[in-house]
Simulated scan of single mutants.
Amino acid sequence: MPIRIPDNLPAAKTLETEGVMVMNSSRAARQDIRPLQIGLLNLMPNKERTETQFARLIGSTPLQIDMTLVRITDHQSKHTSEEYLKTFYSTWEEVKERKFDGFIVTGAPIAHIPFEEVKYWSEMLEIMDWTERNVHQTMFICWGAQAALHHFHKTRRYRMPKKAFGVFRHTLAGAPNPWLRGISDSPMIPVSRYNDIERSSISDDLEILIDNDEIGVCMLRDKVRQALYMLNHLEYDNRSLADEFDRDVKAGLNPEMPANVFPNGDSTAEPENRWRSHAHLLFQNWINEIYQTTPYEIEKVGRVAHEP
Protein backbone atom coordinates (compact mmCIF):
# COMPACT_ATOMS: atom_id res chain seq x y z
CA MET A 1 0.00 0.00 0.00
CA PRO A 2 1.19 3.55 -0.67
CA ILE A 3 1.97 6.55 1.46
CA ARG A 4 -0.34 9.52 1.03
CA ILE A 5 1.42 12.87 0.90
CA PRO A 6 0.19 16.37 0.00
CA ASP A 7 -0.73 16.87 -3.66
CA ASN A 8 2.22 18.12 -5.76
CA LEU A 9 4.80 17.72 -2.97
CA PRO A 10 8.20 17.79 -4.75
CA ALA A 11 9.37 14.73 -2.79
CA ALA A 12 6.83 12.64 -4.73
CA LYS A 13 9.00 12.52 -7.84
CA THR A 14 12.02 11.27 -5.90
CA LEU A 15 9.97 8.65 -4.08
CA GLU A 16 8.32 7.37 -7.26
CA THR A 17 11.74 7.09 -8.96
CA GLU A 18 12.90 4.93 -6.05
CA GLY A 19 9.88 2.65 -6.36
CA VAL A 20 7.99 3.94 -3.31
CA MET A 21 4.24 3.81 -3.91
CA VAL A 22 2.80 7.30 -3.59
CA MET A 23 -0.88 8.27 -3.54
CA ASN A 24 -2.16 11.82 -3.72
CA SER A 25 -4.87 13.09 -1.43
CA SER A 26 -7.55 13.06 -4.12
CA ARG A 27 -7.13 9.37 -4.92
CA ALA A 28 -6.82 8.32 -1.28
CA ALA A 29 -10.10 10.04 -0.42
CA ARG A 30 -11.93 7.51 -2.63
CA GLN A 31 -10.65 4.48 -0.69
CA ASP A 32 -12.76 2.96 2.09
CA ILE A 33 -9.96 2.28 4.54
CA ARG A 34 -8.66 3.59 7.87
CA PRO A 35 -5.13 4.75 7.00
CA LEU A 36 -2.62 5.32 9.79
CA GLN A 37 -2.15 8.98 10.61
CA ILE A 38 1.57 9.84 10.91
CA GLY A 39 2.74 13.38 11.64
CA LEU A 40 6.25 14.71 10.95
CA LEU A 41 7.35 17.77 12.90
CA ASN A 42 10.18 18.91 10.64
CA LEU A 43 12.68 21.11 12.49
CA MET A 44 15.48 20.81 9.94
CA PRO A 45 16.47 23.78 7.71
CA ASN A 46 16.32 21.77 4.47
CA LYS A 47 12.66 20.79 4.74
CA GLU A 48 12.41 19.05 1.36
CA ARG A 49 15.40 16.77 1.91
CA THR A 50 14.28 15.77 5.40
CA GLU A 51 10.68 15.10 4.44
CA THR A 52 11.90 12.91 1.55
CA GLN A 53 14.16 10.91 3.86
CA PHE A 54 11.35 10.09 6.27
CA ALA A 55 8.70 9.60 3.59
CA ARG A 56 10.76 6.92 1.84
CA LEU A 57 10.98 4.96 5.10
CA ILE A 58 7.37 5.45 6.11
CA GLY A 59 6.25 4.58 2.58
CA SER A 60 8.02 1.21 2.58
CA THR A 61 5.30 -0.39 4.71
CA PRO A 62 2.45 -2.42 3.14
CA LEU A 63 -0.04 -0.29 5.09
CA GLN A 64 -1.65 2.92 3.87
CA ILE A 65 -0.22 5.96 5.61
CA ASP A 66 -1.44 9.54 5.66
CA MET A 67 1.60 11.71 6.37
CA THR A 68 1.01 15.22 7.69
CA LEU A 69 3.93 17.66 7.54
CA VAL A 70 4.03 19.92 10.59
CA ARG A 71 6.11 22.98 11.45
CA ILE A 72 6.61 25.23 14.44
CA THR A 73 3.91 27.89 14.41
CA ASP A 74 5.83 31.15 14.74
CA HIS A 75 9.33 30.19 13.60
CA GLN A 76 10.49 31.76 10.35
CA SER A 77 12.56 29.43 8.20
CA LYS A 78 15.71 30.86 6.60
CA HIS A 79 16.12 28.04 4.07
CA THR A 80 12.56 27.24 2.97
CA SER A 81 10.17 29.74 1.45
CA GLU A 82 7.03 30.70 3.30
CA GLU A 83 5.04 29.83 0.17
CA TYR A 84 6.38 26.26 0.25
CA LEU A 85 5.59 25.94 3.94
CA LYS A 86 2.06 27.29 3.54
CA THR A 87 1.44 24.94 0.61
CA PHE A 88 2.67 21.69 2.14
CA TYR A 89 2.87 22.19 5.90
CA SER A 90 0.44 22.68 8.75
CA THR A 91 1.47 24.62 11.82
CA TRP A 92 1.24 22.86 15.16
CA GLU A 93 -1.57 25.24 16.10
CA GLU A 94 -3.51 23.86 13.13
CA VAL A 95 -3.06 20.20 14.08
CA LYS A 96 -3.05 20.25 17.89
CA GLU A 97 -6.72 19.27 18.09
CA ARG A 98 -6.06 16.17 15.99
CA LYS A 99 -5.05 12.66 17.03
CA PHE A 100 -2.16 10.77 15.42
CA ASP A 101 -1.25 7.10 15.41
CA GLY A 102 2.41 8.03 15.09
CA PHE A 103 4.37 11.26 15.31
CA ILE A 104 8.03 11.98 14.49
CA VAL A 105 10.00 14.93 15.84
CA THR A 106 13.19 15.53 13.85
CA GLY A 107 16.53 16.91 14.89
CA ALA A 108 17.52 20.57 14.57
CA PRO A 109 20.96 22.22 14.10
CA ILE A 110 20.84 24.01 17.45
CA ALA A 111 22.82 21.62 19.68
CA HIS A 112 25.02 24.48 20.89
CA ILE A 113 22.07 26.37 22.39
CA PRO A 114 20.74 25.55 25.88
CA PHE A 115 17.23 24.15 25.57
CA GLU A 116 15.59 27.01 27.44
CA GLU A 117 17.22 29.56 25.11
CA VAL A 118 15.84 28.04 21.90
CA LYS A 119 13.42 30.57 20.42
CA TYR A 120 10.58 28.08 20.06
CA TRP A 121 11.23 26.16 23.31
CA SER A 122 7.89 27.13 24.87
CA GLU A 123 6.06 25.66 21.88
CA MET A 124 8.27 22.56 21.99
CA LEU A 125 7.23 22.04 25.61
CA GLU A 126 3.58 22.21 24.59
CA ILE A 127 4.16 19.80 21.70
CA MET A 128 6.03 17.26 23.83
CA ASP A 129 3.29 17.30 26.47
CA TRP A 130 0.65 17.13 23.71
CA THR A 131 2.14 13.89 22.34
CA GLU A 132 1.28 12.12 25.59
CA ARG A 133 -2.44 12.78 25.09
CA ASN A 134 -2.82 12.86 21.32
CA VAL A 135 -0.29 10.42 19.83
CA HIS A 136 -0.24 6.65 20.13
CA GLN A 137 3.52 6.33 19.59
CA THR A 138 6.13 9.05 19.13
CA MET A 139 9.66 8.85 17.75
CA PHE A 140 12.03 11.66 18.72
CA ILE A 141 15.19 12.02 16.56
CA CYS A 142 18.60 13.56 17.43
CA TRP A 143 18.02 17.04 18.96
CA GLY A 144 14.34 16.17 19.27
CA ALA A 145 15.34 13.11 21.32
CA GLN A 146 17.71 15.12 23.51
CA ALA A 147 14.99 17.71 24.11
CA ALA A 148 12.38 15.10 25.03
CA LEU A 149 14.78 13.22 27.32
CA HIS A 150 15.62 16.51 29.03
CA HIS A 151 11.96 17.45 29.42
CA PHE A 152 10.45 14.11 30.41
CA HIS A 153 13.33 12.52 32.31
CA LYS A 154 15.73 15.34 33.28
CA THR A 155 18.45 13.49 31.38
CA ARG A 156 21.66 15.53 31.26
CA ARG A 157 23.57 16.13 28.05
CA TYR A 158 27.17 17.26 27.66
CA ARG A 159 29.51 18.47 24.92
CA MET A 160 31.83 15.72 23.71
CA PRO A 161 35.55 16.45 23.22
CA LYS A 162 35.04 16.15 19.47
CA LYS A 163 32.14 15.69 17.12
CA ALA A 164 30.90 12.13 16.56
CA PHE A 165 30.80 12.12 12.77
CA GLY A 166 30.51 9.15 10.44
CA VAL A 167 28.96 5.70 10.24
CA PHE A 168 29.67 3.61 13.33
CA ARG A 169 29.02 0.03 14.33
CA HIS A 170 26.59 -0.29 17.24
CA THR A 171 25.30 -3.13 19.40
CA LEU A 172 21.80 -4.14 20.39
CA ALA A 173 21.09 -3.94 24.11
CA GLY A 174 18.27 -4.89 26.45
CA ALA A 175 15.61 -7.54 26.04
CA PRO A 176 14.18 -8.56 22.65
CA ASN A 177 11.61 -6.02 21.49
CA PRO A 178 9.35 -5.47 18.48
CA TRP A 179 11.13 -2.32 17.24
CA LEU A 180 14.44 -4.06 16.50
CA ARG A 181 13.01 -7.24 15.06
CA GLY A 182 15.23 -8.49 12.20
CA ILE A 183 18.03 -5.96 12.81
CA SER A 184 21.53 -7.46 12.99
CA ASP A 185 23.47 -7.62 16.25
CA SER A 186 25.90 -4.89 15.15
CA PRO A 187 24.20 -2.43 12.79
CA MET A 188 26.09 0.41 11.11
CA ILE A 189 24.37 3.73 11.88
CA PRO A 190 25.10 7.31 10.71
CA VAL A 191 26.04 9.75 13.47
CA SER A 192 26.46 13.52 13.40
CA ARG A 193 26.38 15.23 16.78
CA TYR A 194 28.47 17.15 19.27
CA ASN A 195 26.47 16.17 22.34
CA ASP A 196 25.94 12.98 24.28
CA ILE A 197 23.82 12.14 27.32
CA GLU A 198 25.24 11.23 30.69
CA ARG A 199 24.61 7.56 31.38
CA SER A 200 24.34 8.24 35.10
CA SER A 201 21.31 10.47 34.41
CA ILE A 202 19.37 7.79 32.49
CA SER A 203 16.37 7.01 34.68
CA ASP A 204 14.90 3.60 35.40
CA ASP A 205 11.96 4.56 33.19
CA LEU A 206 14.25 4.30 30.16
CA GLU A 207 15.71 1.23 28.46
CA ILE A 208 18.71 1.42 26.12
CA LEU A 209 17.96 -0.45 22.89
CA ILE A 210 21.01 0.41 20.73
CA ASP A 211 24.38 1.43 22.14
CA ASN A 212 27.98 2.27 21.30
CA ASP A 213 30.70 2.34 23.97
CA GLU A 214 32.78 4.87 22.02
CA ILE A 215 30.27 7.53 20.99
CA GLY A 216 27.39 6.92 23.37
CA VAL A 217 23.81 5.78 23.52
CA CYS A 218 22.00 5.55 20.20
CA MET A 219 18.39 4.62 20.96
CA LEU A 220 16.19 4.27 24.04
CA ARG A 221 12.59 3.41 24.70
CA ASP A 222 10.37 5.02 27.29
CA LYS A 223 8.80 2.47 29.63
CA VAL A 224 6.16 4.97 30.77
CA ARG A 225 5.29 6.86 27.60
CA GLN A 226 4.77 5.40 24.15
CA ALA A 227 8.01 6.92 22.85
CA LEU A 228 11.33 6.02 21.27
CA TYR A 229 14.39 8.27 21.40
CA MET A 230 16.82 7.89 18.47
CA LEU A 231 19.92 10.04 18.95
CA ASN A 232 21.44 9.21 15.56
CA HIS A 233 20.29 9.21 11.94
CA LEU A 234 19.16 6.00 10.26
CA GLU A 235 16.97 8.18 8.03
CA TYR A 236 20.01 9.77 6.33
CA ASP A 237 20.49 9.20 2.60
CA ASN A 238 23.77 8.29 0.88
CA ARG A 239 25.17 11.81 0.76
CA SER A 240 23.91 13.35 4.00
CA LEU A 241 27.23 13.06 5.85
CA ALA A 242 29.30 13.72 2.73
CA ASP A 243 27.40 16.92 1.98
CA GLU A 244 27.83 18.05 5.58
CA PHE A 245 31.58 17.44 5.26
CA ASP A 246 31.77 19.34 1.95
CA ARG A 247 29.82 22.24 3.45
CA ASP A 248 32.22 22.54 6.37
CA VAL A 249 35.25 22.29 4.08
CA LYS A 250 33.93 25.16 1.95
CA ALA A 251 33.28 27.18 5.12
CA GLY A 252 36.95 26.80 6.08
CA LEU A 253 36.20 24.82 9.26
CA ASN A 254 38.84 22.17 8.49
CA PRO A 255 36.55 19.28 9.55
CA GLU A 256 37.68 15.72 10.11
CA MET A 257 36.55 13.33 7.40
CA PRO A 258 33.46 11.36 8.47
CA ALA A 259 34.39 7.84 9.54
CA ASN A 260 33.45 4.89 7.31
CA VAL A 261 31.69 7.02 4.70
CA PHE A 262 33.98 7.37 1.66
CA PRO A 263 35.38 4.21 0.04
CA ASN A 264 39.13 3.90 0.84
CA GLY A 265 38.99 7.29 2.55
CA ASP A 266 38.66 9.05 -0.83
CA SER A 267 36.41 12.08 -0.35
CA THR A 268 35.91 12.36 -4.12
CA ALA A 269 34.34 8.89 -4.28
CA GLU A 270 30.60 8.30 -3.92
CA PRO A 271 29.69 7.26 -0.35
CA GLU A 272 28.48 3.73 0.31
CA ASN A 273 25.16 3.22 2.12
CA ARG A 274 25.68 0.61 4.86
CA TRP A 275 22.55 1.31 6.88
CA ARG A 276 19.64 1.39 4.42
CA SER A 277 18.23 -2.04 5.33
CA HIS A 278 18.31 -1.28 9.05
CA ALA A 279 16.56 2.04 8.48
CA HIS A 280 13.73 0.33 6.63
CA LEU A 281 13.48 -2.40 9.25
CA LEU A 282 13.27 0.06 12.13
CA PHE A 283 10.49 2.11 10.55
CA GLN A 284 8.57 -0.94 9.33
CA ASN A 285 8.74 -2.39 12.84
CA TRP A 286 7.65 0.92 14.38
CA ILE A 287 4.69 1.27 12.04
CA ASN A 288 3.73 -2.39 12.47
CA GLU A 289 3.74 -1.96 16.26
CA ILE A 290 1.52 1.11 15.86
CA TYR A 291 -0.85 -0.77 13.55
CA GLN A 292 -1.12 -3.71 15.93
CA THR A 293 -1.92 -1.60 18.99
CA THR A 294 -3.55 1.68 17.98
CA PRO A 295 -7.33 2.04 18.48
CA TYR A 296 -9.41 1.67 15.33
CA GLU A 297 -11.38 4.75 16.37
CA ILE A 298 -8.63 7.34 16.25
CA GLU A 299 -10.41 9.66 18.66
CA LYS A 300 -9.62 7.06 21.36
CA VAL A 301 -5.87 7.59 20.94
CA GLY A 302 -4.46 8.73 24.26
CA ARG A 303 -7.31 7.17 26.22
CA VAL A 304 -6.52 3.47 25.65
CA ALA A 305 -3.74 1.86 27.67
CA HIS A 306 -1.12 -0.03 25.70
CA GLU A 307 1.53 -2.38 27.04
CA PRO A 308 4.55 -2.82 24.69
Rank of each mutant, 00 (worst) to 15 (best):
F165T: 15
N195S: 12
N195G: 06
Y236W: 10
I3P: 04
R27A: 11
T68Q: 04
R34L: 01
K13G: 08
W143N: 04
L9V: 05
N177C: 07
R159K: 14
P114C: 09
A164N: 05
I202P: 00
P271Y: 08
R4M: 12
D243R: 13
H79W: 03
W286E: 04
D196P: 04
P62L: 12
P263C: 12
P178C: 14
E116Q: 15
K99A: 00
G182I: 09
E126D: 14
I33S: 04
F115I: 06
H280M: 06
K154H: 10
M1S: 13
T106W: 07
M1V: 14
K99V: 04
R156Q: 15
L281S: 12
P178H: 06
H280P: 01
L209M: 14
D66P: 03
D211G: 08
N212F: 05
W92G: 08
A28C: 11
L36G: 01
H306S: 15
K78I: 06
T87V: 00
R34C: 01
M67S: 03
L228Q: 04
T52C: 03
K250C: 06
I290T: 00
G216S: 05
I110C: 10
H151S: 10
P263I: 15
W286A: 02
P35V: 00
D129P: 00
N46F: 08
P45Y: 11
E93M: 08
Q31G: 00
Q53N: 12
T80Y: 07
F245P: 03
A29G: 03
T61V: 14
R34N: 00
N46Q: 06
N264Q: 13
D129C: 08
P35M: 01
T52R: 14
M21S: 07
R49A: 14
Q137D: 03
L43K: 04
L15D: 09
R274E: 04
T294W: 01
P2T: 15
E244H: 11
A305R: 10
V95Y: 07
H278P: 01
S192Q: 09
P6W: 15
D246Y: 01
I197D: 02
H112T: 08
S122M: 15
I65W: 02
N254L: 07
M230Y: 10
I183T: 11
P62W: 11
T14H: 12
G107C: 12
I183R: 09
D185V: 11
N46M: 08
R274W: 05
P308V: 00
L180Q: 03
T50K: 10
V304S: 02
K154M: 08
L281Y: 07
M67V: 01
E82L: 11
Y84C: 04
D196S: 14
F262W: 06
F168H: 14
E48W: 02
F262Q: 07
D7W: 06
R71D: 05
E97D: 13
V20W: 08
Y89Q: 07
N46W: 05
P263G: 15
E307I: 12
G39T: 02
V304E: 09
K47A: 09
F140N: 10
R225S: 11
M188A: 15
Q76A: 14
P187A: 06
V304I: 12
S201M: 09
A173F: 07
